[in-house]
């Protein structure tokens, strides 16, 4: 580990290991509880609905516990940094806009959302100018529109703008 890593230390790999294994453990418990509810035993004509999910949940729990134990045993080793602050910012710079994009799709439709998303992404992260952004940000959704709505007749989510044009 070098100094710069130390400076921008965010969260240790070990903590993440615990968190992930913990989530898996919780999921496995839920899985077993749900499976038990619908019957998880071996009936006369073979396994019931919950038979396999229950056992899958049990193995999952054992696996997650083993990962936790393993992480705990490796305690005396130096703990790495899961993700640097700068890197985390970069990841979020994609993840957050994507989340907004996906959420916006429901309200303004796929095509408008895509135009804005591609445009914003290029402007924000790529620092492109409008003459470069415009053809791509408009061209891709239009191409997809021709392809999906008109040619293959696969409807994608649409918003007010498309409704205005009668789609």
């Amino acid at each position: 580990m070098n100094d710069s890593d130390k400076v921008e230390r965010t969260v240790g790999v070990r903590v993440m290991e615990y968190v992930v294994a913990g989530i898996v453990l919780a999921f496995s418990a839920l899985l077993m509880q749900q499976s038990d509810k619908i019957g998880a035993s071996w009936a006369s004509d073979g396994p019931q609905s919950g038979y396999f999910p229950f056992r899958v949940g049990a193995i999952l729990a054992i696996g997650a516990l083993a990962v936790i134990v393993q992480t705990a045993l490796a305690r005396n080793q130096t703990d790495g940094n899961f993700v640097g602050r700068g890197a985390l910012r970069d990841v979020m710079a994609v993840l957050l806009p994507s989340a907004i994009y996906v959420a916006a799709m429901t309200w303004i439709g796929f095509y408008v959302a895509s135009t804005v998303f591609i445009g914003a992404f290029m402007w924000w992260l790529g620092k492109y100018r409008l003459p470069v952004i415009a053809p791509i940000a408009l061209g891709i959704p239009v191409a997809l529109f021709l392809l999906f709505e008109l040619w293959f007749k696969v409807p994608l989510p649409k918003g007010p703008l498309e409704t205005m044009f009668g789609y």
Partner: peptide, 8 residues
């Protein structure tokens, strides 16, 4: 864990 998650 990965495989069991897939099954689940």
């Amino acid at each position: 864990v990965a495989m069991m998650l897939g099954f689940a």
